[in-house]
Amino acid sequence: MNTLFYLAAAVAILATLLVITRAHAVHALLYLIVSLLAAALAFFLLGAPFAAALEVIVYAGAIMVLFVFVVMMLNLGTHSVRGERQWLRPAAWVGPGLLAAVLLAELVYVLGGWSAPATTPAAIGPREVGLALFGPYVLAVELASVMLLAGLVGAYHLARPQKEAEGEA
């Protein structure tokens, strides 16, 4: 089983690497879905089946579909891919890469020193999560719902056809 986890981890990292290097948005999105599915597998293996299911449904499903819709609406075509290739010169990767390497080194140093014993987590099913969610965390649920409402209103407001605003812009 452990091998499965490491395999999923490897797939997730590899797919994410491909996401960030693609020039074509749709390709990147598809790789991101792969990465998210791998992460979902890791969730499942870590004893969080409910989180895994949500990862597949909400992340890989709903959110990515939203991205796909937007990319389709923008109808970018091949010239944008060419522009993207131009932006992605190797030199552009050096700085962020170095920065990320430094951070990774630091994190490895910190987490490596954290030699927690290997545990065998018991699976925590939807029942426990649901009880906790609507028990002690009910306020967090309310907050999340308000936030989603705000997102909804904000998205509606931004996407509204603005005739009068054209002149100002």
Binding site: L99, E106, L107
Partner: peptide
């Protein structure tokens, strides 16, 4: 964003 990242790296380094 780069500034934020550098800051994060610096803070971690400082704490560690």
């Amino acid at each position: 964003a780069a500034g934020l990242t550098v800051g994060a790296a610096a803070i971690i380094a400082w704490v560690v």
